[in-house]
Structure formats: structure tokens, C-alpha cells
Design a protein around this nucleic acid. Structure first.
Length: 631
RNA sequence: GCGCUCGUAGCUCAACGGGAAAGAGCACCGGUCUUCUAAGCCGGUGGUUGCAGGUUCGACUCCUGCCGAGCGCGCCA
């Protein structure tokens, strides 16, 4: 009895199993089955014989020949040959490849996905301090984290998305004092170095500041002048900008009263948080399951001292006192040096708060009841020095069985006409994420942010990002999707009679036997370009698995740009007048292929957080003007 | 100085626990619309994987040294 033919996405496993049986019991795990490196040498390839030869010590080519004789390969295999040092190349029957169309139409948006039965993951990303607008580096982290979350979930993980908000502490107090004082400055005057001085202060906090009571919270011009002078003197005396900021904070606390200032400080942090959230929404980043607040979730419950106590308990010897401060022995775990948790003045450090935060992560129940199996913290590459101490503290809390990963996001540089766009946080001038999105659009920002490996520097060509031609990857991919939509839409409109039914069934996704009958029909659409397109569609599930496994959304970006979109465009170009095709079965087969390609393009774009437009243009003809175009 | 990340075509980048003759896109050259989106498609030119060793049947991939780049090295956050 021939077993039912598997879906094309299961071919690799079926072949791997066949070779594993033929190798048994020599190999510990099934041999990998992948794409041949060299084009034109078959559809799939495996180094099974090389692996076997390593164990048995025989000649790899001999082993390969023996394997081919012993292995009973599945029905969909057309043939297999030994090549090179002992690789086995496998050819598939064309109809086995075009069968992927039926699988895609049956599974719809689920094609390439796995059921939500995988491990639980707490994915923390962005976590920018709420002291100013997001800049482009945060944007890259957001795009990476959001796409990674989608890809992991698509491949079966249960992902919890979280933002750690440092909405309390000295920096927030400085921001609160700055936001309070700024509207009271005489014209031409600025806040001292060390305070927050960006123009966004006026923009973000004027509404909040207007609600402050007039008395007490307002200084006279003389008082303002005196405070500024005092602050600058303090900085000079102590030889650090920090002193200037502290002077402002103290003045604010006096003017407000401790309690009222704490409220104001919380208000300022909340305003910044809302602004960050809005920026992220603009870029299509899904909201976080939780904004973990240092103020509300750690400090107010006394969680930080609790964490230090538990640390002392669980990892005796890992804490010690020196010079009046409390230290954590991270140097023993690969850190450069030991780190201070509680300063001599009694205040805890940022690291202590982070330790408490990770203690909370470890103690929490993931969806399903058990603790999270994996913690992923997406960090800016400038924080790489922070990795060892976090890993050490997670281990000290007993999180040894929890996998901690910290992907680093390298810097982004913007280029406009070949010139680097200046970005300086120093002077309060930002290359802000909002500005970038306004300039090139959310889709382009999302694409470019994940177009390179996260740990590589990224250059974004702003002019290219705006271009409306195939040089712009964003445009090119979306264009492929839009033109397929146009054809399918036209087919539906022109259809009438039975061809209308064809299109409906094509567009309908899974219904009844959809897959099987489509698969049979596909025999009528096996032109080379169609087969190539089907090969690319078949690669999608493996690609997603690899992107998830390697935490590498860029692989999906590259797949869409270099494999799927070109194949879809190419098939479209080489198969003219699909709508007028006389043979209804052939027409239906071709439209099915277009619908399958459209579905996978849409899936890919969605996983990258990009839109999949139905149409790209109508009447606006512009060419990014090379001659004349004003300005 | 120490640590982390990295060095691949003229440019921007890929290469799945080591696997065949290292792949794309851009740039450059040449074709292609009485046809559903030509804002597209088809064809062509390009390499000592920074340098020198080592491990291996096999190295862009692992190890060592050197050269070069970025980032980090507070009782800051």
C-alpha cells in the first residue's frame, strides 16, 4: 500500500528518514537534507554518506553508492546520484514540486507555521529609558524584536513580549526637573549641562506642565536666575555635570515638596512612555504584553531589597561588603570585575534593579503555568559589557536551567545622497525614529532595520528607501504582491460563469478537498518558471524554521527579496494573458499558483511587520526626479 | 591597556551543528511592452573570504598570532 504522499514541506524529513534507516544504526541523528549548494545538481542533497563514512571509515563515495542501493526513497523522488566527494543529490518529480500550491491554498496563512506547542519565551526588547524620544537605534531594536517575536510565534513558540521601563530614579528626576524648569527660562537662556535640554521637552511636557499649580511650583525670574547660577557653580565646584543636575532636582523637590515631586516625576515618565508607545505603533510594532515598570513593579513593592536578600540566600558568598558598598562577585563568572549592587550612600544601582527584574522574570509563570523556558533580552550593542553580569545574576538566582540569550543590535547610520545624516544626542538633536519614519515610511523603516544581521552595522540609504523602483527592496517586494493581487482581482471581475468559480475556489483558502484537486490540476502548469516558483514556495517553511532557530529575521528579508519576489515576477512575465487562457483547468492552475505566491508573500511581509498592499500606484507618476525636480 | 563584536566582488550584504566549484542585490554593458501593474522581465562581466600559521578527508565557518574597524571598560543609567 503506498502511503499518502506527504506535503512538499515534509519532503526533507521523509528523505532524511529514508537515509537514516539505510544508515542505521551508525548515525546518531538523521542526516541533514538541504538545498544543493550548486544549482542544477538536483533539488535536494544530503551529506549522509560523508557522515556515515566518518563513522565506518570507508570511502565516502563507496558509502554513498551503498546507501543509494539500500535506501528506499519515497514516491515523489525522481532519482538520485552520487556527486563530488560523496554527496547524494536528489531530484524530485515536477508534479511533486507543484503540489506545494495545493498545500498552500489549503493551509492559507498557516502555511509554514507550526502549532503553538513550542517553548515559552519571554522576549524583552527596546526597553529604552523614557527620558527622550526613541532614536533610530531603538527603532532597529524594535523592528528586530517585533519581527523575531512574530517569527518565533509562527514557528510554534509561545512568546511573551515585554518592555522594561526605567521610570524611576535619578535620570527620571533630572528629566522631571528639566521639564519643570524649562518653560520658566527667560528667552535665550538654557538649562545647564547635565540636565535634559532637548527641544522635545517643550513639545512633550507643556500640557502636563500647564496642569501644575501656579503657586509654589512657579519660580520668579530672579529665583530662576539664582537657581541656574547655583547649579552651574555646583558643577564647577564638584567638577562634574552631575552636580548641576542634582542641584536642579533638589530645587524642584523643595519647590514641590517630596511627595508632589514624586508625582510629577511619575507623570513625566508616563508621558514619555506614551510617546514611546506611539512611536512604536507608528512603525507597526505590536503592543507589549507588559510594560514592566521599575517604579510600580519593583520599587514600590520593595522588590529590590528583597532580591538582594534572596541573592544572598541562594548564592552565599556571591555578595560581600567593601568600602561601605554591597558587591556582587560577577568577576568569577566571566565579568571584567565585581559590580556594586548597593552604594555606600544606601542607594541601589541600576544593576540591582535589573537583578530584581530578572528575579521576577524567573519566578513568574509563563502561559501554561510553568516558568519561562527561555529569556531573550534584545540589547543595544553598546551594552554588550552588561551581558556577563546579567548572565551571572540569572545563574545566581538559580536560573541555570533557563536559557538566557542576549542578541545585540549594532548601530544604524543614515545616509542621504551619500552623506551621513548627522545624529547627536548630545545637543538634544536626534535622528529620531519618528523623523525617520516620516521621511521614508513605516514599511521601509521596518524592512531596512531587519535587512541585515542584527550584530552587523547597518547603513540605510534614505534616498533608496524612498525610491519607487526595483532598486528599492521594499518597493520591489510589495510590487510583486500588488501585481499578483491585480491579476487575481481582474480574473475575478472578468470571470463570469464557471471561471468565476475557479477564481473563487482559488481565493477561498481551505475548503473541502481544495489541496488535492489543485494538486492534480497543477500538472497543467509546469512550465520552468512555474516549477522554479514552486521550489521557492517549498523553501518557505524551512526558511522560517531557520530564521526562528537563528533569531535571524534578516534571512526572511533576503528570501523575499532575492528568491520569492523575483520568481513571482518572473513567472508573471513569462506567462502572459493568464486571464484569457482558454483551457479552464490550466487557467485555474495558473491562478492557483499566483494565489499561492501571493499568500506566501503576504505571510512574509506580515512577519516582518510590513503591509502587503493590494495596489501600489494608480495615477501618480513620479520618477524620483533625476532632472529638474525642484528643491 | 583589557574585553566584546566584526573584516567576504568596485558598493551593500548572504552562506542553516565544518561539507561540492563561496552566492545575491546595486553599479556597469546589451536585449525586451498591439498582452492582466515594463515602477517589470531576460542575458552578460566580477573573488587569494584582512594577513600568517594550526586542527580536519574537507575551513568563510573551529584554534593561535598579527593588522585594521566599531563599541564597552563609574559606588552613571
Amino acid at each position: 500500500m503506498p502511503s499518502p504522499s506527504p506535503f512538499p514541506s515534509e519532503y526533507r524529513d521523509a528523505i532524511a528518514r529514508a537515509f537514516a534507516r539505510a544508515c542505521a544504526p551508525a548515525l546518531e541523528r538523521p542526516p541533514p537534507v538541504g538545498k544543493p549548494r550548486v544549482a542544477g545538481r538536483g533539488d535536494l542533497a544530503t551529506p549522509a554518506a560523508l557522515m556515515l563514512a566518518k563513522v565506518t571509515g570507508e570511502n565516502p563515495r563507496e558509502a554513498a553508492k551503498r546507501l543509494l542501493q539500500n535506501a528506499s526513497l519515497p514516491d515523489f523522488v525522481d532519482g538520485a546520484e552520487v556527486a563530488g566527494a560523496g554527496f547524494i543529490n536528489i531530484r524530485l518529480k515536477p508534479e511533486a514540486k507543484t503540489a506545494v500550491v495545493g498545500e498552500i491554498l489549503q493551509k492559507g496563512a498557516r502555511y509554514g507555521s507550526r502549532p503553538q506547542e513550542g517553548e515559552t519565551v519571554l522576549l524583552e526588547f527596546v526597553s529604552a529609558n523614557p527620558t527622550g524620544p526613541l532614536h533610530i537605534g531603538h527603532g532597529r531594536a524594535a523592528a528586530y524584536g517585533d519581527s523575531l517575536a512574530k517569527i518565533l510565534a509562527f514557528s510554534g513558540a509561545r512568546v511573551w513580549r515585554e518592555y522594561y521601563l526605567n521610570d524611576a530614579g535619578r535620570q527620571i528626576d533630572i528629566l522631571a526637573a528639566s521639564a519643570w524648569l524649562r518653560p520658566q527660562l527667560p528667552p535665550g537662556e538654557t538649562l545647564p549641562e547635565g540636565a535634559y535640554r532637548g527641544d522635545y521637552l517643550a513639545e512633550y511636557f507643556s500640557a502636563a506642565a500647564a496642569e501644575l499649580p501656579q503657586d509654589g511650583c512657579r519660580l520668579s525670574p530672579e529665583e530662576v536666575a539664582a537657581l541656574l547660577a547655583q547649579s552651574r557653580e555646583a558643577a564647577k565646584a564638584a567638577n562634574t555635570e552631575d552636580a548641576a543636575a542634582d542641584a536642579l532636582v533638589n530645587a524642584a523637590k523643595t519647590a514641590f515638596g517630596e511627595e508632589a515631586f514624586a508625582k510629577w516625576s511619575a507623570k513625566v515618565a508616563a508621558v514619555m512612555r506614551d510617546s514611546i508607545s506611539a512611536d512604536l505603533r507608528t512603525m507597526g510594532v505590536e503592543d507589549f504584553h507588559r510594560w514592566f515598570s521599575e517604579r510600580d513593579d519593583l520599587r514600590s513593592g520593595g522588590k529590590i531589597p528583597q532580591a538582594l536578600e534572596e541573592l544572598a540566600q541562594k548564592a552565599p558568598g556571591a555578595l560581600y561588603e567593601k568600602d561601605g558598598a554591597l558587591w556582587f562577585k560577577s568577576a568569577e563568572s566571566g565579568d571584567d570585575k565585581d559590580r556594586v549592587l548597593r552604594r555606600a550612600n544606601g542607594e541601589h544601582t541600576y544593576f540591582a534593579a535589573d537583578a530584581a527584574y530578572h528575579r521576577d522574570k524567573l519566578a513568574r509563570a509563563a502561559p501554561g503555568g510553568k516558568p519561562f523556558a527561555r529569556l531573550i533580552n534584545v540589547l543595544g550593542a553598546d551594552h554588550h559589557g552588561y551581558v556577563p553580569r546579567i548572565a551571572a545574576v540569572v545563574r545566581a538566582f538559580g536560573g541555570a536551567e533557563v536559557a538566557l540569550e542576549i542578541p545585540l543590535i549594532q548601530f544604524v547610520a543614515l545616509y542621504e545622497d551619500g552623506a551621513r545624516v548627522k545624529m547627536s544626542t548630545r545637543a538634544g538633536k536626534f535622528a529620531s525614529l519618528a523623523e525617520m519614519i516620516a521621511a521614508i515610511g513605516a514599511d521601509a523603516a521596518r524592512y531596512f532595520f531587519v535587512s541585515r544581521r542584527n550584530d552587523q552595522h547597518l547603513d540605510v540609504d534614505m534616498r533608496l528607501a524612498r525610491a519607487k523602483n526595483k532598486k528599492n527592496p521594499v518597493y520591489y517586494i510589495q510590487y510583486a504582491h500588488a501585481r499578483l493581487c491585480a491579476v487575481l482581482k481582474r480574473a475575478q471581475e472578468n470571470g463570469g460563469g464557471n471561471s468565476g468559480d475557479d477564481v473563487n475556489s482559488v481565493n477561498g483558502g481551505d475548503g473541502g478537498d481544495g489541496g488535492d484537486s489543485t494538486a492534480r490540476n497543477m500538472q497543467l502548469a509546469q512550465e520552468p518558471a512555474a516549477v522554479v516558483l514552486c521550489e521557492r514556495l517549498m523553501a518557505f517553511p524551512d526558511l522560517i524554521a531557520r530564521a526562528a532557530q537563528n533569531r535571524a529575521p534578516h534571512l526572511l528579508a533576503a528570501y523575499l527579496l532575492e528568491e520569492l519576489a523575483p520568481a513571482a515576477n518572473s513567472y508573471y512575465e513569462k506567462t502572459p494573458r493568464i486571464i484569457r487562457e482558454k483551457n479552464p483547468d490550466r487557467k485555474r492552475a495558473r491562478l492557483s499558483l499566483l494565489a499561492a505566491a501571493r499568500a506566501v508573500l503576504a505571510s512574509g511581509l506580515t512577519l516582518l511587520g510590513m503591509s502587503a498592499p493590494q495596489r501600489m500606484y494608480s495615477d501618480d507618476a513620479d520618477d524620483d526626479g533625476n532632472n529638474g525636480g525642484g528643491q
